Simulated scan of single mutants.
Amino acid sequence: MPDFGLQVYNQSNVLQIDSTYKNLALRAKGSVAATTATAQGDWFYATVTVSAGVSPVMAFRCPVACYLRQTTIANGNITYLFLVKGNSQIVQYWIFDDPVQATRSGNYGLQVFNSAGSLVFDSRSKYMRVLDSVRGNGNLSDPIEAGFTRSYSGLPAVVQGQLRFRVTNNATGQPPAITVFGALEQVAPTFSGTNITFAMMPSAVVQYSVNQNVPPGQFHTAYDYLVLDVANI
């Protein structure tokens, strides 16, 4: 319960803002082209590096299949590495963080503080708007294997949580001339207007030499995404 002060309700009489309000606010946004080639000819890398901030959450969208491959933190910065299907395709991103890190514009608006004097809401900030949660619990026959599409209001982008991926090893040839290939498949969302298509697809193949130790196959089945509305943010 709030300790004192302002309370704001919506038209359904649901409490929206008071001194206990907490949400992440926009700190940075931008776009980046995927132009760094990978060993798999039709997939390209794109990277975004920003200040690590306090507790960043990054949402993204792209008109072709793409996914967040890796996140690293070093020297006070955080770097996001995307893998994108297609050369020079554009990844849009939005980074939300603790409200003290928020990007604000203008000199007028409403601010709400709690009893400790900490700012909990500023009308000049652009807060995270959650539309949906898309997740799977690890079922091997999950619908995401074939793919499915969901439609939303606004402009949807996703925060990637767990990444569903599979690495399988396949051998060709006859002894002793056997070649082993390791194939990577993972979920790579595709965005089109208000639609998002979630589907497994291949993104890399590794050929192992005769003298190499071939690592065992891997399969992480669970996945989860938070869908945000980034329209006019």
Rank of each mutant, 00 (worst) to 15 (best):
G41R: 04
Q212T: 00
A188G: 07
Y208L: 11
P175C: 04
P2Y: 06
Q111R: 15
Y9S: 00
G217P: 01
V54R: 07
P143D: 08
Y223D: 09
D229T: 06
S105N: 14
G154M: 08
T71Y: 10
I196L: 14
N10K: 01
G147D: 02
Q40R: 12
S133F: 14
T190V: 13
L68M: 13
V210F: 03
G217W: 01
G109W: 04
Y223H: 12
W43I: 03
T194W: 00
I95V: 14
K85G: 13
A222R: 12
I17W: 12
A171C: 11
R69Q: 13
N10I: 00
Q70E: 13
Q212G: 01
N23K: 06
A102Q: 02
K29C: 10
G136V: 08
R135V: 07
L6G: 07
L155M: 11
S209K: 09
A25W: 00
N75L: 03
T72N: 13
P143T: 03
D97W: 03
S192M: 01
N170F: 06
A46G: 02
P56I: 13
C66M: 15
K126M: 05
G136C: 01
R150W: 00
R135C: 07
V57N: 15
S151K: 06
D122M: 09
H220V: 12
D98I: 07
S192G: 11
N139V: 09
P143I: 01
S141N: 07
M201S: 12
S125V: 03
K85V: 15
I233E: 05
M200W: 01
Q11C: 10
V14D: 12
V112A: 06
M1V: 08
A28S: 11
D98T: 08
Q111C: 08
R164T: 03
S88A: 05
K22H: 09
R124E: 12
T38I: 01
K29W: 08
A28T: 15
S151C: 03
